[in-house]
Design a protein around this nucleic acid. Structure first.
Lengths: 196, 196
DNA sequence: GTAAAACTTTACACGGTGTCAAGTTGGGGT
DNA sequence: ACCCCAACTTGACACCGTGTAAAGTTTTAC
């Protein structure tokens, strides 16, 4: 039997996930999560050293459940740079829409909590590597537009694909995910693919 | 004499501004601001009902001191849509770089404090109107690209010009303000101006 | 000169995080 | 069958920053 302890840990992660989802990432306290997991508040601290640790673990748990690596595979295996860029945007955009409530809670802690900031920064670096790979693939095919230098293009794409922009477009501007994806692809194409 | 009370109010605003500037918008408490203004913490609450009120007032104070309206005039008087768009980006980008520390503090409160959220939302609507005017000017000249519908173009420009993007590019990517401005203009041109 | 406004001082309530210490429960190993 | 240990509970508490309350003092305006 895979230790009772591990079971509890998972229950807490699921509770955090469920509550953040239900409350759009707002106003979920440690005690709420404990209650949802049917565990004492202190038990939560036996498994996670603090709130930022719990939230970070929750994102990793979601990654695992949703098998994020598998979703990125099509992009990595794309036959050309242009397709790779599109598939990357697709995978990332869909991922954000699932991780968003947890990400929002984690983002909200950034300014006060440096653990949260560090954890987040790590994940954003991973995104940047994805952007870099996409831009490189474009360059390799000779399709990278000459509007931006390599680094500029990576920085730009990284910025465009930020969770804040996803949030702004889908929440504030009320764009559907489908619209977000198609318009973002269009934007990236227009900016980074050399026009004939 | 323009009432002592008004003087104190201004001193508090200046104190808030100075401290936020010095601390990049992080970790500035009401008591710090009071101390800096050489006033009791409670005096601050006599002039501003709460933290979000104070921060909002601080941005308005900066607007006034830096004469933001005057800075936007060149954009409004531009002789064509393309120029108008560029001048708008210029004025706004430079504005962000001055308001940023205060804006950051205000943004950090968004998730918890609804006063702050409302105040911020109002300011962002003003930005959106500016974006809309710029896109309309482009449309009027027949220079608006057909990639996006009118609303989509406005939403996109609005998103691109967000403070979060400015922050990401200038802080995380370490772009200079000059670079931010030139690349953002280039991006906007590429996206919204009809290519010949 | 006086009343009202501005400001100070001290104290406290509240909400949320994180810590501490002592008690309880239940499963595994010998 | 026993005991032990790890997992968990319970209840109390410190801390931090915001905002409030009330009573006292100084300053301003007229």
């Amino acid at each position: 039997m895979s230790s009772k302890s591990e079971e509890t840990r998972i229950r807490i992660l699921q509770a955090a996930w469920k509550l953040l989802e239900a409350n759009r990432g707002d106003g979920v306290r440690m005690s709420d999560i404990a209650k949802q997991a049917e565990v004492s508040r202190q038990a939560v601290y036996l498994h996670f050293s603090n709130r930022s640790d719990l939230l970070t673990a929750t994102t990793l748990y979601i990654d695992k459940i949703k098998d994020i690596d598998a979703r990125l595979a099509p992009s990595r295996n794309a036959e050309n740079g242009i397709l790779r860029l599109e598939l990357f945007i697709d995978a990332w955009g869909r991922y954000i829409s699932e991780i968003y409530p947890v990400a929002k809670a984690l983002l909200a802690m950034q300014d006060t909590d440096e653990d949260a900031a560090a954890a987040w920064s790590g994940r954003m670096q991973a995104l940047r590597h994805g952007c870099e790979a996409a831009i490189k693939a474009l360059q390799k095919d000779g399709h990278l537009s000459s509007l931006f230098s390599h680094k500029e293009a990576v920085d730009m794409l990284w910025t465009i694909l930020s969770i804040r922009n996803w949030e702004h477009l889908t929440q504030d501007c009320e764009w559907s995910l489908k619209k977000y994806l198609s318009k973002t692809k269009l934007l990236a194409h227009q900016l980074f693919v050399k026009q004939k």
